[in-house]
Design a protein around this nucleic acid. Structure first.
Length: 524
RNA sequence: UGCGCCGUGGAGCAGCGGCUAGCUCGCCAGGCUCAUAACCUGGAGGUCGUAGGUUCGAUUCCUACCGGCGCAACCA
């Protein structure tokens, strides 16, 4: 047996100064689907997430609450993980950048870049608010003033800081984009970055002076490492850079960084330049996903009175939540969220099609044969499929899922498997057939059982809980844990098909009870 | 201002050089009754933002314009 191929996938780390919202959930779910899919494809997957804690805002927020920063970030990390768990986001590791493993790695990294001659000291000039006692960036300002202290006039102050020689890497970055067209995905993001880098890069300030919270610069104890130079490093420190070389060698470079489209520049320009400077290999791909907007066209974010993911999950479950975003919003582009649309999609695709297919199939098996469909040749269970090469079709779906085209993949699964199964029932009319021909009715139901099995495999990365229910509705020889995407193209070896679903009064409980009124979805 | 995106039947989206422009919801008619009043079949409804251009041929490529929007170095 050869070693299974490895797949290292990451998401952006989040600021823990407020709770996760729908937009961040979108990213994590998209990455989780990929991680689950790759596991099914036989990869040994490492799925990395975390929180970005070494920022001034975090220590400010902790101070507001009268908490020690470390205690505050630990508590927030717990809250974030609760949400990810509730959404069935199955990460393998969750790093907090206040952890020692990150600090140690950061210091080793910045020293390496320093030794490579890419860090120099220079005066940094920026507006400074005496009220906050900190430097501001243009974006922090509201009408040229500090939003927290609008009466005060901002002073332009100078501070000696360390800069990273990003400008020196423009040519090498462009050469890399050229040689590795798949490095930045989707295509539109790539074009943006290429033109950005062509237009020239400036060196970036990477340290700050006199901060109590943050990672010390090893060659200058007065300074701490500033934002991106610290945050990006989580991708390597989490897998052991600076603390566990053997583990680091096993996982780095990452196969894909899943991030929001607004931070592609940091991941596609700054990050690879940093790695080049430190002499480390570059990640294979950066995927910049789109944003989720609410009905009034605003970005779903912390500030806009956004819907709390948990309110939806509590009522409808993680799978319904995941389905909505993966089906409705193209991962590479933008999408919309509204409760009306959520209810519409939920009722149509999950309740009426998916859930009802399960109900009617299971109910007939129980009612007509007490769950025992008898023995049959597996090859006779492919009749529900319709014509065409099913193996090719499954390969197309694999390709779609593997390239993050989740919405298209789900549409095709519904159109060509779930609808086909419902149509098969209409054509073979088992509920009439049972009156005159029980034997062929068994055959029809065995086909439907097989269809449920195929559905289970195909939706496994997207709706893990529902998928397992579907699979375990019948006793299949092949263990659920080991099932691969390609197994959907093959009929199960099982000869004797037997119902195993939970029944109440001879029927299964609805997997997705219909949403009767939009109000059911609840507000944040 | 710079860079980029979008404008397709009532609503939301696919299509991105060429068979009668697809899909979901909604609407209308029929079928069926196993099932979560679900499922199946059929139908009505679009001169693909506007004006030019390239081409044998454009929703699909190019230009301009109109309308909506995003990003621009610490909101995924």
């Amino acid at each position: 047996m050869s070693e299974p191929p490895r797949f290292y996938i990451t998401t952006a780390i989040d600021y823990p100064n407020s709770r996760p919202h729908i937009g961040t959930a979108f990213e994590k779910i998209g990455a989780d689907v990929q991680a689950r899919f790759r596991r099914m494809e036989g990869y040994r997957v490492h799925f990395q997430m975390g929180n970005d804690e070494n920022t001034v805002k975090v220590s400010d927020r902790a101070a507001e609450l009268g908490l020690d920063p470390k205690r505050y970030v630990d508590e927030m990390a717990g809250q974030f993980r609760e949400v990810w768990d509730a959404l069935s986001v199955g990460y393998d590791d969750f790093i907090q950048t206040s952890e020692p493993r990150h600090q140690v790695g950061c210091q080793q990294f910045i020293q390496a870049v320093y030794d490579a001659g890419d860090i120099y000291k220079k005066a940094y000039t920026a507006p400074y608010c005496e009220g906050c006692e900190e430097f501001k960036t243009e974006r922090d300002l509201v009408e040229g003033r500090c939003p927290n202290h609008p009466q005060r006039t901002l002073k332009v102050l100078e501070e000696e800081n360390y800069f990273f020689r990003l400008s020196a890497y423009a040519e090498r970055l462009l050469a890399h984009y050229e040689a590795h067209p798949e490095f930045i995905q989707p295509e539109s993001r790539r074009n943006e970055i290429v033109s950005l880098v062509r237009s020239g890069l400036q060196d970036v300030s990477i340290t700050r002076k006199g901060m109590a919270w943050g990672i010390r610069v090893p060659f200058d104890e007065e300074q701490t490492i500033y934002v991106w130079f610290d945050a990006l490093l989580n991708y390597i420190t989490a897998v052991g850079y600076g603390s566990d070389p053997e583990r680091f060698g096993r996982w780095w470079p990452a196969d894909v960084h899943v991030i929001g489209k607004d931070i592609t520049r940091f991941h596609c320009a700054l990050w690879p330049a940093m790695l080049m400077s430190a002499g480390l290999p570059l990640p294979r791909q950066v995927f910049g996903h789109g944003f989720v907007y609410n009905k009034s066209g605003q970005k779903e974010s912390k500030s806009s009175g956004a819907t709390d993911p948990m309110s939806l999950v509590r009522i409808h479950g993680a799978d319904a939540f995941r389905y909505y975003f993966m089906r409705e919003c193209p991962f590479g582009g933008d999408g919309n969220f509204s409760e009306e649309r959520f209810a519409e999609l939920y009722n149509a695709d999950l309740a009426n099609n998916l859930g009802n297919l399960y109900s009617r199939t299971v109910a007939m098996c129980a009612k007509y044969f007490a769950g025992d469909l008898g023995e049959s040749d597996p090859e006779t269970r492919a009749g529900w499929r319709g014509s065409g090469d099913f193996g090719d079709w499954v390969d197309q779906v694999r390709e779609l899922v593997g390239s993050f085209q989740y919405n298209v993949a789900l549409q095709r699964i519904w159109l060509e498997v779930i609808d086909a199964a419902n149509r098969f029932i209409a054509e073979t009319v088992p509920f009439q057939r049972i009156k005159t021909d029980p034997e062929s009715t068994r055959q029809v139901l065995a086909n439907l059982a097989e269809a449920l099995r195929v559905v289970a495999i195909l939706i496994k990365p997207f709706l893990p809980t529902t998928a397992e229910r579907f699979y375990r509705a019948f006793e299949w020889e092949e263990p659920w844990e080991a099932v691969a995407y390609r197994d959907a193209a093959r009929v199960s070896r099982t000869r004797s098909v037997r119902l195993a679903a939970d029944l109440r009064d001879g029927k299964p409980a609805p997997l997705f009870p219909k949403i009767e009124a939009v109000g059911d979805t609840a507000r944040a």
